[in-house]
Design a protein around this nucleic acid. Sequence first.
DNA 1: ACATTTTACGAAAACCCTTTCGTAAAATTT
DNA 2: AAATTTTACGAAAGGGTTTTCGTAAAATGT
Lengths: 346, 346
Amino acid sequence: MKKITLKDIADHFGVSISTVSKAINDSHEISRDVKLKIRQYAKAHHYRPNRIALSLLKKSTNTIGVIVPNILNYFFTQVFYGIEKTANSRGYTVISCVSDESFIKEQQTMKLLSAGTVDGIIMSLAEQTQAKGDLQHILDVMENQIPMVMFDRVTDKVECDKIVVDDFEAGYKTTKYLLQTGCKKIAIVSSIFNSSVGKLRVEGYREALQEMGLDYDDKMVVKVGGADDLEILISLLLDSIAVDAIIALDEMTAVDTLNILKMKGIDVPDQISIVGFTNGRLSKYVSPALTMVSQHGKYIGELAANILMDRLAYEGDMPFTTKLVKTSLIERDSTRKVDKNHRAYQ
Amino acid sequence: MKKITLKDIADHFGVSISTVSKAINDSHEISRDVKLKIRQYAKAHHYRPNRIALSLLKKSTNTIGVIVPNILNYFFTQVFYGIEKTANSRGYTVISCVSDESFIKEQQTMKLLSAGTVDGIIMSLAEQTQAKGDLQHILDVMENQIPMVMFDRVTDKVECDKIVVDDFEAGYKTTKYLLQTGCKKIAIVSSIFNSSVGKLRVEGYREALQEMGLDYDDKMVVKVGGADDLEILISLLLDSIAVDAIIALDEMTAVDTLNILKMKGIDVPDQISIVGFTNGRLSKYVSPALTMVSQHGKYIGELAANILMDRLAYEGDMPFTTKLVKTSLIERDSTRKVDKNHRAYQ
DNA sequence: ACATTTTACGAAAACCCTTTCGTAAAATTT
DNA sequence: AAATTTTACGAAAGGGTTTTCGTAAAATGT
């Protein structure tokens, strides 16, 4: 049984296509008996209006495009999950694309999506795009009147709705928390020192130190490239400074750091506390379970989808907004309990 | 600048739409100068043929739909990644949907996708659908002449291309491996004892035992429901039998089991070896790092996409195939090294 | 100079759907 | 009985594209 169209049904009953369409859409223009037999036949043959034809007619596809840099990253998976769930509940379909952190692929994908395939786009910039700073393909899309929401990795050069994690506050809050648990010498291990995200977290850390009258020491901010560096760099750090807490700016580095400390026979959290960023699947399962900063990926996805769909539904002008999503600290066993007395002084 | 169409360009030059179309498609029917000025204008105004209109005309969307039960599961994320990459490289777009293990959502999604939105579908059954056994929505799609590839969670009731993990062999191979490392009393911890996948693995395990002349003992196959059961059930197991190896049928259970054994002061792998299923992100990062069975999610995704696209490209009949993908054992530190002498007897 | 071919373009159909408008016939009102 | 309204349907446009076919004018061949 091939796909059935209005024409097929019209031919079968010897009526016009418009009659069939109206009958199926329960128009009052069609008599009761004609309507009945047509609807019955349509149902029996699983008639469903062709979405493509409808899109062409209505000039809207009820589809939104999503471009994430790396779907294997749990944060993006979570965001994607949030988007899909929300879009779906509001009758939208999601076309998902992965830029794989590549500028070229992002460019191609944007072109594809903007060729009438989607009503709007949600995206996070590829690493290469951020490094290159060439955003023409994104400006093109905006010029084409396609609404866009950028999240996490955004840019000032494009005017659109944005959702960013409050990374400054996250760095600040995390540092403050460690200080409250009695830590005095807090180091940072970063594998993302080039990104805006990484820089903001360090700035927040700096602010927190300053507020407590502590000195910021550049040597305390360790920049790691590959995983191999980590062990050497941590050893170097520990040899020179009596560190009592480490903030790792991504989950894998956090877990690696934990393992290195354990190998060295250092007790976590008694001798050194660890807080990691991105509350993924790992942190709960290592021992001690790691205290992590959650970025609320799923919530960000829901928010992005809602903002986009609101804009799509809204007639007339709507100012662009930038939402700042706060992080949460998920306390587990890699940090000490907050010192109540100390907290009292805050 | 609004979206520009052939008509806009035609109006601008006072020529017909067909002339513009031919000029842009570099037809020999159009004179050099007309072609030149039209193409130039089109490029300057970022003309791109509307994909929706093309889809309607060509009766193909160059899009494939993917339905996975749970995108937060790393295995499915990997499969999805493989599909997206492969589809993309062959000029296809991917519409991704999540059934969330729900029968209703799977049903709705299938309807949506089969309404002309996609050329083909790749899917893995939702848990609810498997439990319910109602596959009408899938049969409907097949009747609609939409090619489909099912992977991992498949069913005999639908005739289509399928890709399944060789779970019997995986259970067999894993057991054999543990025996070769000198283990004699191998237990299984399963949270998926109702699924075909789980059953096959246990059968493979049984076969391996039998082959070595060892008895199969039902008490050695522990069925866990929630995470809370696990500790009690493992304690019960260890109290009654001198187990020296545990096979966990999913990653989280493997890690949980490891942590429980460590808490009990049992050395892994010296006293008890552990092998887990699904080589995800956790296993590498716990200590000792877990020996795992990899299902090659990314490869399965690539395979599924290629089979589907091959079928879409092929004119005429093509028999349905079922591919059996072998698993690989990734040896880490939760199992002992293979006993060479023992192996010699194999 | 006339017949034939080539060149260069336009008209129209097809893809499938919804909706507006037009119009007979039937039903109602005057 | 004539005028008006209502009922129930069909024709056609429009959405954007490609492609087949038709056809003037220009170019070529004899």
